Simulated scan of single mutants.
Amino acid sequence: MDINQLKSLSIIPVLRKIPYEKSKDIVQALFDGGIRAIEITMESDRAELIIQETVAEFGEKMLVGAGTVLSIDDCKRAIKAGAQFIVSPAFDETVVAYAISANVPVIPGVFTPSEMLKAHNAGVAMVKLFPASVLGPGFIKDVKGPLADIQILTTGGITKETARDYLDAGAVGIGAGSALIKKEFIASNDWIGLVNEAKAWIQNTK
């Protein structure tokens, strides 16, 4: 996978601890709403199976990544399951090195300019600013001055209403969790509601 494919997508839903038995419906609803990349976190129930099944069903139409990758073991299991990109909430040099050696794009979590530069120098093509809402869009705008070449994905506390601000500040994309994949949609099997929510996020970030 070319990281440029991810850069062309403004919203990447984060599927964290979703019920396995509803995973296909959730992914289908997101796809129907226009989503073309998702992140399935490794602490989810049967995460590897969800990745495998999603890649088998949507692999040609949607990028399927693994999130909350905290160790080389997590990384190996995610890649073996078919993950097309790796996301971590923190910068672990061993995880980054392993993913790069496996030719799988890796997006480590960072919080400071020093971490951004260190990750960039380690060979990553994109970093994840997390938790982004603590710093706000202004931080991205400021840091993109001296670190213009670093591609920043933002995750953590971002809402449908604030997402556009982060993109305008220079972020290449938004990782959206429970603010998009709302618990009430899943609890009530309201897949039409999830489709419409995905559409609204995309509309707000155009």
Rank of each mutant, 00 (worst) to 15 (best):
N204T: 15
G175T: 04
K160T: 05
A122C: 11
I174P: 05
E184T: 02
M42H: 10
V14R: 07
A83G: 13
F91R: 03
G173F: 12
V104C: 03
I38E: 13
L9H: 07
T205G: 05
G82F: 07
A198C: 13
K22Y: 09
A47D: 14
A83M: 03
P131A: 15
K17H: 11
A47H: 11
I186E: 07
K128W: 14
F111P: 01
A119Y: 10
G59A: 01
G34F: 08
E161Q: 15
P113W: 06
A37V: 14
G34S: 01
Y20T: 08
Y166F: 12
E161V: 01
I152W: 12
A47P: 09
N121L: 02
I192C: 04
I181L: 12
G59Q: 02
D165W: 06
K206P: 10
L135S: 06
I50P: 01
V195P: 00
R36F: 09
I181H: 00
A83V: 12
T68P: 11
K61Y: 08
W201N: 00
G34A: 11
Q28I: 00
T68G: 01
I38S: 05
E115S: 06
M1L: 14
I79L: 08
F85G: 07
A176D: 08
G65A: 05
A122I: 14
K206Q: 14
P89Y: 15
F130W: 02
I3V: 13
A200T: 12
D25W: 10
G59I: 14
G34L: 03
S71D: 11
P113Q: 04
A29F: 08
S178C: 04
T155V: 07
P13G: 03
L135G: 00
I72K: 15
D2V: 03
F85L: 08
I79H: 04
N4C: 06
L194I: 02
T205R: 07
I158K: 14
G177W: 06
V64C: 07
R46H: 14
T159D: 02
E93F: 01
T68A: 13
Q5R: 09
V55D: 09
K7N: 11
K160C: 01
T68H: 06
W201I: 07
F130K: 09
I11V: 11
F185E: 07
E48D: 05
E43R: 00
E53G: 03
G33Q: 05
M126C: 10
F91A: 00
I192E: 08
V27S: 12
P131R: 05
T112H: 04
I18P: 07
S133V: 13
L194M: 06
F91I: 02
I174E: 03
M1G: 03
V27M: 13
A179E: 09
A97E: 14
Q28S: 15
E60Y: 02
E21A: 12
I181E: 02
L180F: 10
M42V: 04
K61C: 03
I140Q: 10
N121D: 05
K182S: 00
V104N: 05
A169P: 01
G156I: 09
D2H: 12
N204K: 15
I72P: 00
G136K: 00
L167S: 07
S188K: 10
F85M: 08
E21M: 02
F58Q: 01
D73C: 05
K182A: 01
M62Y: 09
S188L: 05
K199F: 04
I158G: 09
L129V: 10
L180M: 10
K61A: 05
I11P: 07
K61T: 04
I152E: 06
G59D: 12
